[in-house]
Design a protein around this nucleic acid. Structure first.
Length: 441
RNA sequence: CGGGGCGUAGCUCAGCCUGGUAGAGCACCUGCUUUGGGAGCAGGGGGUCCUCAGUUCGAAUCUGGGCGCCCCGACCA
């Protein structure tokens, strides 16, 4: 993409409404614009990041055997009456009336809807297990939205729902998601720590929050240092094998948010206790037959008896992750995108647009990078060098290739990593080799 | 939902106290000069001063209602 053609309205100054760094940078980098309190439009740069995150989530969900569907944002109130949550949910639920005075709501989550689908179309244990997910916008009418997309009212969430015949099956489904989540966040360049979460009235130990450490996190978290040193489950790990040992390994170390943390009872000695702030980016939850029973999602088992489905639900806050990654990865100049989620991998800066040599070298390089299959943003604008550098640093592309008349006289361009380190002078051949190698990875 | 603050150009803000008909910097448009860290000069465009009502000869400015947004707290992916 040529910068001169990209809709990328960057701001030099910080809009007054933004407080935390990710919000400020997302506005300044032209990723989002606020439509209303806690409701945002996503501009091209933000959209690309959102799509990349979605895609990682999707790939890991698919790899675990979950299947993608898409449920609507607007749901009928009657379904929620069946589960009893229409009255329980309170003012956080956005209630709507259509022209026929039918009661609708903008979904804050989808348990009712999915259970209703299963109730209608699954009737035999042979149809199980099932795990269905979708990535859809949700709405929760927070009393006080804040922190930009970190705590909006409208947000993009991946949620899925597992259905099993019995508890052992449900536990296995839960374990699959546990591992899929570890892999998903890892791929995004995040260190997410699974923490035992409150399971409410259901009880049991089958709920975990995945928390990313960041100074601006909304809650205080405590964990054993060992968790930060854990190795990801091997890529060869088969989702159909017994996953319990792996999950046990991760859950054997202490980790708790401040609600569950009691200093006096903490089993980790001071030297090994990591204290920090955390952002919750995902939660997994087993809840048995809470919805399947009232909503009639039952199957006939091998013995002929009808049993309610054992269910679990699993969420990842996709739009929140955009802010989370920025919180975890930025400096005073702007965002520093991990390669896996960057809106473009490489930025090419033409220091002297209009100069024949510079234009030619940039065009060649730009085409070469594209043909190599890498994403590239080419700043071809007639702007000052400083403005281009500042802009490039703000939007945080992992790699910058600088092409200017000075270097070009000696046949050189510069390669610089946004994450730090010295700029490297390279010949045009060398930079093409670098691109080819990068594309080969 | 309690407490506080704010609403003037695309952005950051001044003007309001003490009423007299709209400002700055940045951004934008035109031209010239510039070009390795957010340029210079000249010219130009752009505002229902959140909204409604009231006071007044006259309201961005004073008074009241409403709406919106932000912050702190309680609550949440």
């Amino acid at each position: 993409m040529r910068r001169s053609e990209l809709f990328l309205p960057t701001l030099r100054e910080t809009p007054a409404e933004a407080q935390i760094v990710s919000h400020r940078l997302m506005l300044r980098a032209g990723m989002v614009r606020q439509a209303s309190a806690g409701i945002y439009s996503w501009l091209p740069l933000g959209m690309r990041v959102l799509r990349r995150l979605e895609q990682i989530v999707r790939e890991e969900q698919d790899a675990s055997g979950a299947q993608e569907i898409l449920m609507p944002t607007i749901q009928p109130a009657d379904l929620w009456r069946k589960s009893g949550r229409y009255d329980d949910y309170g003012k956080e639920m956005l209630r709507i009336t259509d022209r026929h005075d039918r009661e609708l709501l903008y979904g804050p989550t989808n348990e009712e809807l999915i259970t209703d689908i299963l109730a209608a179309d699954v009737s035999s244990y042979r149809d199980l297990p099932l795990n269905l997910y979708h990535i859809q916008w949700k709405f929760r009418d927070e009393v006080r939205p804040r922190f930009g997309v970190m705590r909006g009212r409208e947000f993009l969430m991946k949620d899925n729902y597992s259905f099993d015949l019995d508890f052992a099956g449900a536990r296995h489904s839960y374990n699959k998601m546990f591992i899929a989540y570890l892999r998903t966040f890892k791929r995004m360049g995040l260190q997410a720590i699974p923490m035992r979460a409150d399971t409410g009235p259901i009880g049991g130990d089958l709920s975990h929050e995945f928390v990313v450490l960041a100074d601006t996190g909304e809650s205080a978290v405590f964990c054993d240092k060992a968790l930060l040193e854990m190795k990801m489950p091997s890529a060869e790990l088969d989702y159909d094998s017994d996953l319990q040992p792996v999950v046990d390994q991760w859950t054997s170390h202490y980790a708790a948010t401040d609600e569950l943390h009691v200093p006096e009872k903490c089993p980790v000695d001071e030297g090994r206790l990591v204290q920090g702030r955390g952002i919750e980016v995902g939660q997994i939850f087993y809840f048995g037959t809470k919805y399947s029973e009232p909503m009639g999602a039952v199957v006939q088992g091998p013995d002929g008896n009808r049993v309610a489905l054992e269910m679990g639900s699993y969420g990842i806050g996709v739009s929140r992750l955009v802010g989370t990654i920025i919180e975890a990865s930025h400096d005073d100049k702007g965002i520093i995108w991990p390669e896996a989620v960057a809106p473009y991998l490489i930025g090419v800066v033409n220091l002297k647009s209009g100069d024949g040599d510079c234009d030619r070298a940039c065009n060649d390089l730009y085409g070469f990078i594209q043909r190599a299959g890498l994403s590239v943003l080419y700043d071809d604008r007639d702007e000052r060098a400083g403005a281009k550098f500042a802009d490039m640093e703000l939007i945080g592309l992992p790699w910058r290739i600088t092409v200017g008349p000075r270097g070009l006289k000696n046949g050189k361009v510069e390669l610089q990593a946004r994450a730090g380190g010295e700029a490297q002078e390279m010949s045009l051949d060398e930079i093409r080799n670098w691109v080819t190698a990068k594309a080969g990875v």
